[in-house]
Write a protein that binds this DNA or RNA. Structure first.
Length: 497
RNA sequence: GGCGCGAUAGCAAAGCGGUUAUGCACCGGAUUGCAAAUCCGUGAAGGGCGGUUCGACUCCGCCUCGCGCCUCCA
């Protein structure tokens, strides 16, 4: 039984989908005007993990992660760069995909761009107007009348009074209440036609919050299961989404709200305004993408995650241990063809759901494709599943991986090795050829493979003639370039530090 | 100021009212020509003060400290 911590109820509860066996999930994605940083990487990886686990648990998942391709910062940046909005956003959407792909993030089922859903947004704003929740301000903007929505503040645990008491809310422009937010921004003369859309309220462009409400309901329906995003979106963004969606549709919007914790640098939130951010691609120059993914998954998604080279080094060492366990062992064949992949996915689904629905008969009929690949009754798998079902407790799940690695090293069991690879695969980890990972490294200079092989041969010759001084010299020389040699019964292998 | 989250061994990070988390580092042993890797073993913890309990790292209260949201932010 999967339990999810729901920000709305502030506790962990059993996950019950609206439609049996199906999950509809929406996650707030990126505003594309710059490269993604590690904070974005965390959202990508965390919800990819949730997506994978839901699928592995037998749910038919529809995952939507939007792209904000129109907003103040985009407009400003495009102007600075003297390029079109479209050129700018396309560039950074491509960059985002590169980064996400590198991190092993599966593409969502839908990746809608805000600019493609303006009609739906207009429709929603009109509904809000009809329902008496939106009004046209003197400056031409259309605003949401927050005080007219009774549940405002429920998600973030704030009351309107508390919010008003805060001195940080600007009392400006045409808002009836300082807490009201913009649904539709009127066009300014200075702005290019590229950011102007026709509307019943004249030319303009959508406010930020409306896009998620409109795209969510358009693609997933008015009421869906899971909505996620970074913890900083809890207020006001998600609070406003609720007000918009429930205000327009007059029905419940989302059942489970999930928020991931921040990435920090020196115990401070990584953010653009603080300037303490590292872009994904920057980090990937120094660390293997899988190390970064492992680093993220090794912490619980709701906890803060401190970034530093030291921690990445630590993660690399840990992942190395896992891959080392798989180094000499044959694991079951990779699903390389599409048919095979399809079979795997379906089997995964059926198998896990059979397990999830405990002891019924589905197991026999659906387990076949996957049974040889994954035995969910195996003790490690059970522990892994229990951990993941407990609000996606990946640190615990990863601990199971290490216990399995120990068993592999101890028993040299191909079954254990296969199980290790299969369970790790559920997290999007450990799917590469171990040698490729161990010998990969950042590839900053040093010897190439042929030189290394030659050196290893030379060392073996030296060892045979008991010339240990020479053998040690070669080993030391390689070590200085970051190559570690490991002798074993199977011969000498090497890896990069 | 309002609201919320957190404090676990040298570092990182989980579960759990009583029984080894896990990874890295450390120490001892096995293995190795020596290493590395691996295995076995030891050591190392729960911010402070109270309370509940036969028993608390785990529940409750208070305090201290840290972080976050209240403005764009993943």
């Amino acid at each position: 039984m999967l339990k999810i911590y729901n920000t709305l109820s502030r506790d962990k509860r059993e996950f019950i989908p609206i439609t049996p066996d199906a999950v509809r999930m929406y996650v707030c994605g990126m505003t594309v005007y710059d490269y993604c940083h590690l904070g974005h990487a965390r959202v990508l990886v965390v919800f990819d993990m949730a997506y994978r686990w839901l699928k592995a648990s037998g749910f038919d998942v529809t995952y939507v992660r939007n792209i904000t391709d129109i907003d103040d910062k985009i407009i400003r940046r495009a102007a600075e760069n003297k390029e079109s909005i479209h050129a700018l956003t396309q560039r950074f959407i491509a960059a985002m995909h590169e980064d996400a792909d590198a991190l092993g993030v599966q593409r969502p089922d839908h990746e809608p761009c805000a600019t493609q859903y303006v009609p739906q947004m207009l429709e929603m704003i009109e509904k809000l107007e009809e329902n008496g929740l939106a009004y046209r301000a003197a400056d031409g903007d259309v605003n949401y009348a927050v005080r007219k929505f009774p549940g405002y503040g429920n998600l973030s645990g704030k009351s309107l009074e508390d919010l008003r008491a805060g001195e940080r809310v600007d009392v400006t422009d045409g808002k009836n209440d300082p807490l009201d937010f913009v649904l539709w921004k009127h066009a300014r003369d200075s702005e290019s036609d590229e950011v102007k859309w026709d509307s019943p309220w004249g030319k303009g462009r959508p406010g930020w919050h409306i896009e998620c409400s409109a795209m969510g309901s358009e693609i997933l329906g008015k009421h869906f299961d899971i909505h996620g995003g970074g913890a900083d979106l809890q207020f006001p963004h998600h609070e406003n989404e609720i007000a918009q969606s429930e205000g327009a549709h007059k029905c419940r919007f989302v059942n489970y709200w999930m928020h991931n914790g921040f990435v920090r640098v020196d115990e401070e939130k990584m953010s653009k305004s603080l300037g303490n951010f590292f872009t994904i691609r920057e980090v990937l120059k120094k660390y293997d993408a899988e190390v970064v993914r492992f680093f993220i998954l090794r912490a619980h998604y709701r906890s803060p995650l401190n970034y530093s080279d030291m921690h990445l080094d630590d993660a690399k060492g840990a992942l190395t241990r896992l891959y080392t366990a798989l180094k000499f062992l044959p694991v079951r064949p990779e699903p390389s063809t599409t048919l095979r992949t399809k079979g795997l996915v379906e089997g995964e689904r059926g198998d896990a759901s059979a397990h999830a629905t405990s002891t019924n008969s589905r197991q026999a009929s659906t387990g076949s494709a996957r049974t040889d690949l994954m035995d969910w009754n195996e003790p490690h798998a059970r522990r892994f599943k229990a951990a993941m079902d407990d609000d996606f407790n990946t640190p615990e799940a990863v601990a199971v991986l290490f216990d399995l690695a120990n068993e592999v090293n101890r028993t040299q069991s191909a079954e254990a090795a296969s199980q290790l690879k299969a369970l790790a695969g559920v997290l999007g980890l450990l799917q590469r050829d171990p040698q490729a990972f161990l010998q990969g490294g950042a590839g900053e200079g040093g010897f190439d493979d042929t030189v290394i092989s030659a050196q290893i041969e030379a060392r073996i010759t030296a060892k045979k003639s008991k010339n240990f001084a020479e053998a040690d010299r070669i080993r030391k020389e390689l070590l200085e370039t970051g190559i570690v040699l490991e002798d074993s019964a199977m011969g000498t292998t090497w890896r990069r530090v």
